[in-house]
């Protein structure tokens, strides 16, 4: 790893990003599901930054998602329904919260971090629950009224605006994350991942870098939450809850950590599977989902991306 990795986009990547655009025209009836997949992908991306690149296992990441969602939702409820400034505000609040809590998270090992993040997440959940005069408590925040995007496109039943809006935000944030992980900062994170104790020897402050990446991850999660609040015009308290953090973790591991694309693939596969299976059998679909997860672990270590890379390697070896 002598030179910086290239920032150029490969054909495979460009092809990947064409898929959601083509999907918009091919599946006009599935755009609501599509927009929620895109939001989940963005959320998974934010966790990949901190889990895939900094090896901080977080089971409380939904805290930032929920904070973003409540920020955007409350702004819109009390008259500030302009979507893009709502996103920015949500990102700011989530980033700040991320920064404040990051100091608690940086200490300790895997299991400790897991539980500290979990504990922080549960505390935010309780706060939202107690402050029901503001958040609506367990009944959720309703009455979120969005203005038209750019004053032109309204968020309607067909989900067109929601889909394109989510896709655009996902792409912009993805470009940012991609640049980040390929920068010198991103490389030093990779160094931490591979050998946390060796990094100080080459003059890198580990905690400060971890704090930075945790904060960025929190901010992006906030954007994802805000997107969900804006496109569904409702914020449920479950957006802060532990099940959401756990589900997110499943999506990311399913896709493979530390590639960015793994997050997107994992979220898409998980959501599509869930939708498909629960349509087949609304009562026992979880069984088949669980079985698939088990099979994937048994046959493709490191998630979809891990399996994909192993396959490619085998293919290349077969040719040479």
């Amino acid at each position: 790893m002598s030179a910086l990795p290239t920032q150029r986009w490969s054909k495979l990547e460009i092809g990947f990003w064409l898929i959601p655009m083509v999907a918009f025209f091919v599946f006009p009836k599935y755009l609501t599901l599509g927009s929620q997949i895109l939001i989940a992908a963005l959320f998974a991306l934010s966790l990949d930054l901190i889990l895939g690149y900094a090896r901080i296992i977080s089971l409380g990441h939904a805290a930032f998602f929920g904070i973003g969602a409540y920020t955007a939702g409350l702004l819109a409820k009390y008259g500030w329904g302009e979507p893009i400034s709502g996103l920015v505000a949500a990102a700011a609040v989530a980033t700040l919260t991320g920064l404040v809590t990051s100091f608690l998270v940086v200490r300790g090992q895997d299991l400790t971090r897991l539980m500290v993040t979990l504990g922080i997440g549960l505390m935010f959940y309780e706060i939202a629950n107690q402050a029901s005069w503001l958040t609506g408590g367990v009944d959720g925040l309703s009455g979120v009224e969005m203005k038209k995007l750019f004053g032109v496109f309204s968020f309607g039943l067909d989900g067109r605006t929601a889909y394109l809006y989510s896709l655009a935000v996902l792409f912009v944030v993805f470009c940012f994350a991609r640049t980040l992980v390929r920068s010198p900062f991103g490389l030093s994170l990779r160094g931490i991942r591979e050998g946390e104790r060796r990094m100080p020897a080459i003059g890198a402050s580990v905690p400060r870098k971890l704090i930075a990446v945790y904060t960025v991850g929190a901010g992006i999660a906030g954007v994802a939450g805000a997107l969900l609040a804006q496109t569904t015009q409702f914020v449920g308290i479950d957006s802060l809850g532990f099940p959401r953090s756990a589900e997110l973790m499943i999506m990311l591991i399913l896709g493979g950590t530390g590639y960015l694309y793994g997050a997107l693939l994992g979220a898409a596969l998980f959501m599509l599977l869930q939708d498909y299976l629960s349509n087949l059998n609304p009562v026992y679909w979880q069984f088949w989902l669980g079985l698939l997860l088990v099979l994937i672990v048994l046959f493709a270590r490191g998630g979809l991306m891990g399996g994909f890379i192993a396959l490619r390697r085998r293919f290349a070896r077969g040719r040479s």
Binding site: I57, D110, A246, M249, I250, I253, L254, T257, V283, Y284, W285, Q286, F287, L289, G290, L291, L292, L293, V294, I296, V297, L298, R301, G302, G303
Partner: peptide, 29 residues
Amino acid sequence: LYRRLYRATHLDQVLFSIGLVFMSIAATT
């Protein structure tokens, strides 16, 4: 099953055991 995963990463173990949880919930229901 579990025996095959002793050498897997913790993340793979998490995914695997969560899969089992989902299956157990549906089967019990």
